[in-house]
Structure formats: C-alpha cells, structure tokens
Simulated assay, not measured.
Amino acid sequence: MTVRQIAAVKTARYAVLGPEDGPPNEVWMACHGYGQLVTHWARHFHALERPGRLVVVPEALNRFYVGEIGARDRRVGASWMTREEREADIEDVVRYLDDVFVAACARADVDPQTVPLTAFGFSQGTASVVRWLALSPLISRRPTRAARVILWGGGMPHDLDLGAHADWLAEAGVTLVAGDRDGFATPARVMEQEARLKAAGVPVETVSFAGEHRLNERVLREVGAA
C-alpha cells in the first residue's frame, strides 16, 4: 500500500471582536483549546474589549463530535492537530493562522507587518499559537514577532528549541496563566515551564487563580489590562 498526500482547500471560520470605526491600535490572536468551537469560546473575549483593540479568534480546522457515540444532540468541537500526520498538520495550522491574521488585518485596514500583536493560547491552543509565531515566514518578517505571549492552561511546545527562539520570546515575554486546580496545567507543570523559559533567558510572569481548566473573566480582564 502506498499512502500519498494532497493539498486540499477547506473552508474555515474565525470570530472578531473590536473596533469597526477605524483601524485598531493592536491585534490579539487567540487560539482555543481542544474540543471547543469559536461560536461559543469567543464570547469570553468580550472581557478584553477596549477602544483600539481587535481580538481575532480562529477556529481549528478539524471538527468532530464530542461525547458518547449514538447519543442524541452530541456537541461538536474542534482540534488543532493529533499525532497522526503531525508535521503536515503543523504546516497547515501555520499557513491557516497566517491567512486568518492577514484577512482580519485587511478588513480592519491595518498593516499585518507592523500592528502590535498579542498571541494568546488556551490549553491545546498554546502550542499552536507559539508554533505559528516561531514558524510563520510572515511573522518572522515583522520587526517584532509579538508584543506579548499569553499561555493559559498550557505551555510551550515540548519540541520547540527555546535557544533558537529565545531572542524574540525574550522581547515579548511570556505570561503563564493557570487555575490552582487545573488538571492539565498543574502547579508542577507550570513551575517546569517557568524554569525552562527562565533558563533560556525569557522573562516569565506567572498568574495563578482559584479555579480549574477554564478561562476566568476577572483574570482575563486583568491580563488584558496589563
């Protein structure tokens, strides 16, 4: 048996929250976690709305049914990637996030090469948004890849060479956010991420709150106001 690859066109969607009366002063790219959909998850980002800020929330390309097979009204979620055809999926995600960023900036009449960019990831989306910053030719041509990197309930991709990317990460700084009862980004894992980044010379801010593996409106407002 021979397995081959072919590039396919797929229709995707993203949500935007922000100014409609003029170009924004900053753009946030916010990547959701495993099994979430943009139509529901993007609502959290009303907490970040402020004059001059455009929040762009792309939906992962792979939708699937969540829950028990055969159950009625099964919820639909989306995933960024799996271990299957991993390298091809990473390339697809990087290309896709480029397209979303450029399209959102064009509609907002702002230059994607110069507008201040905050990269935000939640859970599985943390690795996706960092890989985008690290691997995108578009982002690499910006004077500053990102003004801020905020990773909530997750962390850096385990296979990212921090030494090779320390300069732009240090320029942006990394904020790690997690609830004190987060079953995925446990306190021990957050400390491990913090130590790994600091060892590479990357400034790290750690934000903890009373809660589980989910966004928190109060903390989101505080992080957005920083």
Rank of each mutant, 00 (worst) to 15 (best):
A103C: 07
R83H: 11
V16N: 01
V3G: 15
H165L: 09
Y14I: 00
T11N: 14
E212C: 03
H158T: 14
V130M: 12
F101D: 02
A7H: 05
R53F: 03
W41E: 02
A108F: 05
E171Q: 15
D99Q: 14
R50K: 14
G77V: 02
A146M: 12
V27L: 15
L151G: 09
A71Y: 07
G70K: 05
V38T: 02
K10L: 11
S136C: 11
E68F: 04
E222Y: 00
L54E: 08
A104I: 01
V94L: 05
P19Y: 04
G18L: 05
A42W: 01
A225L: 08
G77L: 08
A134T: 03
D182L: 01
I139F: 00
V38L: 00
S79M: 15
Y65Q: 15
R148I: 02
L117T: 13
G35C: 12
L220G: 06
I69K: 13
E84A: 15
M81P: 00
A103R: 12
P203K: 07
V149M: 07
P23L: 10
A200I: 07
K10G: 11
L215K: 05
F45V: 04
R141Y: 04
R63M: 03
R181G: 06
V204I: 05
V38F: 00
S140W: 04
L133W: 03
L37E: 02
E87L: 11
G153A: 12
V149I: 15
E192G: 13
L54G: 12
P137V: 05
A106H: 13
A188G: 08
E212M: 08
V16D: 02
Y14C: 01
D73I: 01
V16R: 10
R50G: 06
A7V: 14
G211Q: 04
A71P: 02
L37T: 03
C105I: 01
P157E: 05
L215W: 00
A188D: 15
V56K: 02
A188L: 14
S208R: 15
L48M: 15
R145L: 08
V129C: 11
P116H: 04
P58N: 01
V110A: 15
E217T: 14
T39Q: 07
S136L: 11
V190N: 07
L220R: 06
A210E: 14
